[in-house]
Design a protein around this nucleic acid. Structure first.
Lengths: 210, 210
DNA sequence: GGCCTATTGACCAGGGTAGTCAATAATTAA
DNA sequence: TTAATTATTGACTACCCTGGTCAATAGGCC
């Protein structure tokens, strides 16, 4: 158990998530410098003192969030992506399901991660630099490195086709982000979304597969 | 001539652009509330008083930026998009060139426009609401409404295919944003980018056209 | 009861805020 | 040339919000 943040990690999960989501949202929207701890405690419905009791200071809170959610993301990827499946669309389907599930629990998580990657505050940049390297090289690197290329049409530009598929998946996920949290019928909703994603995969398959 | 902002609009263009780019950047990055007029004047290298001499107050400056760049964007679209050209890829090519050119002159313009659409400050939201409606319904509406659908393969899901093309164009533009301003050989650079975009169009044509 | 931890929120010094205004510089008019 | 007008400066203000502290309280456990 991470002894540094043990006090926080021992909280009941509901309260933990309230704090995490509040902090995620504030940092994602405003970046490190402009994020306000006052806003975080208001949104999380805890007192000012308690936040600093858990996390010591703003910087430690920010870096904890970074590490915590990188861990969660990588763990999910390793656990739920079927690595024996070499079809690029099935691979993406796994990732999409995983992202939608995480998005339901932590709606600002991916916005936070994106914000981290363009964070330019001197207070945290060097510290982030150190941590990012390990993570990138470790887990996310070749999500698609071992994909079955023999399924593509002969003569096609495979790299560009992979980019087109990537942008389609990103575009789809981005456009339907809100739908995931809006409706409460969570599980059903995800399946519907994946069914629509499958239709996009089908269009792409017909265009680019043999 | 817009009499309200005549003092600003009569400035020499170089100084005007310095101010515009500084304001665009600050508002795009931080949103209306957290944007700092102090930062804007520092970046624009003008005095504090002068900014308020031109624009009266922060709110007026923000709304001026909105109107000004919406105007620029719509004018460019009407002037430089070849409306007689019904091929969707040629249509996108026109738009891409136009966006790259604008991006060179006002690097934060599209980030600003995107930020406007998710602005939630009460100080400006209602005012924005009024203005956005006109603009959307007027100009950008059917950029692709009259595109030649007969070129697509029989039996293909045209709506989804159009989305795939859209996401590819967006994804490409986003990935190569930085390249446009980095290098100084502007004109050549744009042509190179468009040539690469053409290669993506070619992949998509081969996949989705008859 | 006593002990320990969880939790509160008033409080602080410091810094940033939008906006002002008297003073100066530059330009134009006569 | 001078006078009038306009462009430009930046020190200044009153106010608000900041990250962080700490003495006080509440609650749970022995």
């Amino acid at each position: 158990m991470n002894v540094l943040f043990a006090k926080f990690l021992n909280l009941n999960p509901e309260k933990q998530d309230r704090v995490l989501n509040a902090a995620l949202k504030e940092f994602a929207q405003k970046g490190y410098q402009n994020a306000s701890t006052n806003e975080i405690v208001k949104e999380a419905e805890i007192s000012k003192g308690l936040l600093f009791h858990y996390f010591n200071n703003k910087k430690d809170l920010y870096l904890f969030l970074h590490d915590h959610f990188m861990d969660i993301f990588l763990e999910e990827i390793h656990a739920k992506v079927a690595w024996n499946e070499k079809d690029i669309f099935d691979r993406y389907r796994n990732i999409a399901r995983l992202k939608f599930e995480l998005y339901q629990k932590y709606p600002e998580m991916f916005n936070f991660i994106r914000a981290v990657y363009s964070e330019d505050s001197n207070d945290v940049r060097s510290e982030l630099e150190r941590r990012k390297k390990e993570i990138l090289s470790e887990g996310y690197k070749d999500l698609f490195g071992d994909v079955d290329l023999s399924k593509f049409k002969e003569g096609i530009d495979v790299e560009k086709t992979k980019n087109i598929i990537f942008w389609t998946m990103e575009g789809f996920a981005y456009r339907y982000q809100d739908k995931v949290t809006d409706i409460q019928l969570e599980q059903i909703n995800i399946e519907e979304l994946l069914a629509e994603l499958d239709m996009y995969s089908e269009v792409l398959r017909q265009g680019f597969y043999k």
